[in-house]
């Protein structure tokens, strides 16, 4: 009992000093190498705690359900940065707060989801389309029909991301209709097309998207480009497609959260991640692409030259997922619920 009290007293006394050396990160699963976290701690003396989530929406729901003030930084995707800023969940900083701010690649500096980069810095970017197991299907895979109107060999062996934004955006691209659409006939057609396609799908799963390809449970699957590269590295004979109808591009960003308990440490962490060597370490781990200049000398050749990271010359431009207004979003929510009922 006495020892317990002593410990408690020590903790209380050490409280303020301890808080100076802490950083609370809310991050995606499997997205930062532990060695890099250790390096940050070794350089700064700041201890890092990481909690993980598996979708942008889950992260937003958790923060809105009362976990603001517990985390310093989070890593939302592009459209989610805009949503979080709109909800007032983000704090701002000045470029001068981050000595490495100038390392941000020019095309990622003035982005529509955070003009002038006031609350966020680039983490990694990549694309979402799909991969096909080449042992199962040898034909041309450069079309989203592989998922939405699949050939005989792939029917019943397709995994689809359990993510409303990505599925509905890819489906819209396949049908050649705009996002955040309010045209009744087109939305009805989109819904009908998805319900018909679902008959050929085996499962919905995001964090399992790689494993089902590696295990052979799925012969084709909607997937992020780096995740597909990892599936290939683990022995699956899969090819990542850049379909002719288009694909989703995304950028994950480190954001400074409002009411961050350790704002200075958060800025130190963001600055650390803008160092080319550190950004490259994340890329080498996650197999996506950094949004920082000067990473090339630190990249593993296998990652830098991977087919997943280097679209063919004739690939179309990718599309970011757009943020719809509440009324329009309701329609897409209804299509998704109807699809999964």
């Amino acid at each position: 009992m006495k020892r317990l009290l002593t410990t408690a007293a020590a903790l209380v006394l050490a409280g303020p000093a301890f808080a100076e050396g802490e950083l609370k990160v809310y991050h995606w699963f499997e997205y930062i190498p532990q060695e890099l976290v250790d390096k940050f701690t070794a350089e700064t003396g700041i201890t890092v705690t990481i909690d993980t989530y598996d979708s942008n929406e889950a992260m937003l729901a958790s923060l809105k359900a009362g976990r603001m003030g517990q985390y310093d930084v989070a890593v939302p995707g592009d459209y989610m940065v805009q949503i979080m800023a709109g909800e007032g969940l983000l704090d701002t900083f000045a470029p001068a707060d981050l000595p490495n701010f100038g390392n941000i690649a020019p095309q990622w500096l003035d982005v529509p989801f955070d003009p002038g980069r006031q609350s966020s810095i680039p983490y990694q970017w990549g694309s979402t389309s799909f991969s096909v197991n080449r042992d199962v299907y040898q034909g041309d895979i450069g079309t989203l029909a592989m998922i939405f109107d699949p050939p005989e060999e792939l029917k019943g062996k397709i995994n689809v991301l359990d993510s409303q934004g990505e599925v509905l955006t890819l489906a819209s691209l396949y049908m050649g209709i705009p996002q955040c659409n309010t045209d009744r006939e087109q939305l009805k057609a989109l819904s009908d097309m998805l319900v018909a396609a679902k008959a050929h799908w085996a499962s919905f799963g995001s964090d399992t998207a790689k494993d089902v390809l590696v295990s052979g449970d799925a012969a084709a699957g909607m997937i992020y480009n780096g995740f597909s590269a990892k599936a290939r590295a683990e022995g699956a004979n899969v090819e990542y497609a850049y379909p002719k109808e288009g694909f989703v591009v995304w950028m994950d960003n480190v954001v400074l959260l409002k009411d961050a308990p350790n704002r200075d440490n958060a800025l130190a962490f963001m600055n650390f991640l803008l160092d080319p060597e550190n950004a490259a370490a994340v890329t080498n781990y996650a197999a996506y692409t950094a949004g920082v200049t000067g990473v090339a000398p630190f990249l593993d050749a296998a990652i830098a030259e991977s087919p997943e990271n280097n679209p063919p010359a004739d690939a179309p431009a990718g599309s970011f997922i757009e943020v719809c207004d509440a009324e329009t979003q309701k329609l897409y929510d209804a299509i998704w619920t109807n699809l999964k009922k």
Partner: peptide, 22 residues
């Protein structure tokens, strides 16, 4: 089941954790 069809539990879970957020 591959998360293909909602059961009561997954339907409710999706309202709090998933994109539907209702």
């Amino acid at each position: 089941g591959g998360a293909k069809t909602f059961m009561i539990g997954s339907l409710i879970e999706e309202q709090f954790k998933g994109s539907l957020g209702n």
